[in-house]
Computed example of a mutant assay.
Amino acid sequence: MRKAYIFIYDDVVGDREKLKNLFNRMSTVKTWRFDMPHCFYVISENSAAELYEEFVSLNGRMGKFLFIEASENRQGQMIRDTWHLLRNKVLKSKQT
């Protein structure tokens, strides 16, 4: 079952470009997106612990970061594409 996670990180972990490349290499990450500084939305069928282990194996233990599951108990002001990803666990089609 797919789960939505929010990945929050500090500058020591890496910059956005480095993290985009890293998430593309991770076998535990199905897809991802971003729209805020120091935050990615990650879709995975794995646990937060498994995401953490693969992330650390590729990037080391530098900086502070957190994988946290985005539950149904959420509210905020986000763009539609982010809400779509968090609700449906897939990126929004470019045709819609």
Rank of each mutant, 00 (worst) to 15 (best):
E45P: 03
E50Y: 00
S47T: 15
E45N: 15
I79T: 12
S71Q: 07
H38D: 07
M36P: 04
L85V: 14
L58M: 14
Y5T: 07
I6W: 00
V56N: 00
N21K: 10
R74D: 14
W32Q: 01
L66K: 04
S44M: 03
D11Y: 08
F67S: 05
R33M: 15
F23A: 01
L66A: 07
V90F: 12
Y5H: 03
S71V: 03
E69K: 08
R87F: 13
K18Q: 12
D10L: 03
G60D: 14
R16W: 00
M78I: 14
E72S: 10
E69C: 00
D35H: 11
E54R: 02
E69L: 04
Y52W: 14
D81K: 11
S44T: 08
E53H: 08
D11S: 07
I43A: 01
E72I: 06
C39I: 10
S71I: 06
D35R: 08
D10V: 11
G76V: 15
L58R: 10
N59V: 09
Q77V: 15
R25V: 00
K64E: 11
M26V: 00
L86W: 06
K18P: 02
T28D: 00
M36I: 13
G63M: 06
T28Q: 01
N88H: 15
N21T: 10
L91Q: 12
D15W: 03
F40P: 08
N88I: 02
K30Q: 06
D15I: 05
G14R: 09
C39V: 13
I68D: 11
W83C: 03
R61H: 12
I43P: 01
N21H: 06
A48T: 05
V90A: 12
I8C: 13
L58P: 05
Y9N: 10
R16L: 04
T28H: 05
N24A: 12
K20G: 00
L22M: 07
S47I: 05
L86G: 05
F34C: 03
V13M: 04
L19Y: 04
I79S: 09
F65D: 03
I79M: 06
V12T: 15
